[in-house]
Every structure is written in C-alpha cells, then in structure tokens.
Design a protein around this nucleic acid. Structure first.
Length: 152
DNA sequence: GCCAACGTTGGC
DNA sequence: GCCAACGTTGGC
C-alpha cells in the first residue's frame, strides 16, 4: 500500500497504531481492499514521492472493507457527490502498524535485485496505490527490510 | 521539470 | 459507444 510520507508515513502509523486507509479513489485499488484483503493480511507500507521511494515497513489489515466516510464529507478533499450513504462508492480497510524498517528498502534496490525485480511495484508506469504482493515476495522484502541484508 | 502511463470527461 | 483532450500519479 502506497502513501506519500508527507501526507501519511510509517512514523504516523507507528504513532496512531491503526488508521483507516481513506482516500482511495481508484476502482481497481478499491476492489483489492473490498475483494481480497482479509483481517490479519500482511501489508508492505510503501513511501511514494519520497527520498528514497521504497518499502518503509510492515502493516496488517485490521478490518474488513467498509464505506470510506470521507466520500460523504463535504469538507474533505475526497468528497464524492455521486456517493450516498445508501449506495457508497468507496470502501477502505483499517491498517495497523507492525514494524518500521531500520532503513527503507528503496525501489531502485528492489528493481536491481533478481529476487524482487518482478514485483508489480517495479513495473514502469505502475501508479496503482494498492498492489498485490506474492507471499514469497513479501517474505523476501520483509527480511531485507528488517535485517538490511540483501537477499541471496 | 519532464514525461510515461493510465483514468476520466465530454462532445459527437 | 468512440475517442481526443485533459488531469493525475509518481519515478527520475
């Protein structure tokens, strides 16, 4: 799950403990949350538009999908006039903090390493804010981030 | 600041 | 329904 650290970083999640992943306004990303995420699923927390951009830590899905309240909030940047309480368009899940890596696993490093080069986030032009990660990939990235040691 | 890769909008 | 124009994301 991507977030710009200026907007919401792994440190913010560490402080809050759990946060509603509000503001997703892309149908594919919403569908991942709605159809594929289950409570307890592990999440790689990715810093985008950052120095460096990359995986900053680990989270965990802490709720099933439910309507994103910001779509009904006139004051919110994420207000959606087409959505209604009876027929919400956008959903989100809560994400809980698990760990912050001692150092960000940079996108450039992920791209350079054969064990992670085929991650979706490594694809050129990949802008989707929520992407699926294979369990094997998760294990590699998590170990890399936690230890700072490149995978074999 | 540039630009690739889309998603969205709106005229037709 | 098609598609051109436009807007956004996000790496570089």
């Amino acid at each position: 799950m991507k977030s710009e650290p200026d907007a919401y970083s792994i440190d913010d999640l560490a402080r809050d403990g759990v946060t509603p992943w509000s503001g997703v306004r892309n149908h594919l990303a919403r569908n991942y949350m709605r159809d594929h995420m289950q409570v307890g699923d592990a999440v790689l927390f990715y810093h985008s538009n950052a120095e460096p951009s990359g995986v900053a830590g680990v989270g965990r899905v802490a709720s099933a999908a439910y309507p994103d309240p910001t779509q009904f909030d006139l004051e919110s940047d994420y207000f959606d006039p087409k959505a209604s309480a009876e027929n919400p368009t956008w959903r989100l899940v809560d994400v809980a903090f698990v760990a912050k890596f001692p150092a960000v696993v940079a996108l450039a490093a992920l791209k350079n390493h054969p064990a992670t080069a085929d991650l979706l986030v490594c694809r050129k032009g990949q802008r989707l804010s929520i992407l699926p990660v294979e369990p094997a990939h998760f294990t590699i990235v998590e170990a890399w981030g936690r230890t700072g040691v490149e995978p074999e």
